[in-house]
């Protein structure tokens, strides 16, 4: 039950002396930083600098070679699986299943119970309501990206519906702006701003500079 409470509380990320290896070679080392709720952190760096690796470690998907990264919710330690929501390069949607089936699956795996109503509401916000029963494989690249964004909001919808000014799970977005058209880019920027205003914590990697309205921003260069 701690997990559910954790998802609705003030998140804080403390990274201490983190080091990562890939294929036996050091990618980065001695990385320390703290991110508070309501902050937007941009991770930048050249190709192969370990941006994705860092996000995967923060999401609990990969192990650090040294040091540690800890998520706190109201000063309680929480597991990455309960603290953060990771969106990687791949869409994490199955081509053969419909948008709705995919979203319901993702919600159930992360411990939510997404109602059909909720799913169609969120898809509507991205102009995707008509696609709800289309199989994912038939969608265009732009539509697929918007589906991933819809999933982010869906996994947040628990805390949003209970909105008490808390930000929900932290978002870890790996190159979220790549392959988005201008409209969708702006939409994503708005969604991120809203998340930050609600007290959420967002960490993203990006090659390009994107204009996101945020009160507190941080940047690390790998």
């Amino acid at each position: 039950m701690g997990g559910i409470q954790g998802a609705r509380s003030v998140m804080r990320l403390v990274v201490e002396k983190l080091a990562a290896e890939r294929g036996g070679r050091a990618v980065f080392a001695d990385l320390s930083f703290v991110v508070e709720a309501g902050t937007l952190l941009r991770v930048s760096g050249a190709n192969g600098a370990g941006k994705t690796t860092l996000l995967r470690i923060l999401a609990g998907l990969a192990a650090a070679a040294d040091g540690n990264a800890a998520w706190h919710a109201n000063d309680d330690l929480v597991r990455p699986a309960e603290a953060a929501c990771f969106v990687g390069h791949a869409n994490a949607f199955n081509d053969a299943l419909s948008v709705k089936e995919n979203l319901a699956y993702a919600a159930a795996l992360s411990g939510h119970n997404a109602s059909s109503q909720n799913i169609s509401l969120i898809l509507d916000a991205f102009g995707m309501k008509a696609m709800i029963n289309r199989s994912f494989g038939t969608l265009s690249q732009g539509q697929r990206k918007r589906c991933s964004l819809a999933r982010l909001l869906l996994l947040d919808s628990d805390s949003a519906s209970n909105s008490n000014g808390r930000g929900g799970r932290a978002w870890l977005l790996d190159e979220p702006f790549v392959a988005l058209d201008v409209d969708t880019q702006a939409q994503l920027a708005t969604v991120i701003s809203a998340k930050l205003v609600a007290g959420g914590l967002v960490i993203y990697t990006s090659h390009q500079a994107v204009d996101i309205h945020a009160a507190n921003t941080q940047e690390i260069l790998l």
Partner: peptide, 11 residues
């Protein structure tokens, strides 16, 4: 397709 990460990142 990346769905494996949903399983791995599940609580």
């Amino acid at each position: 397709d990346g769905s494996l990460e949903l399983m791995l990142a599940s609580p």
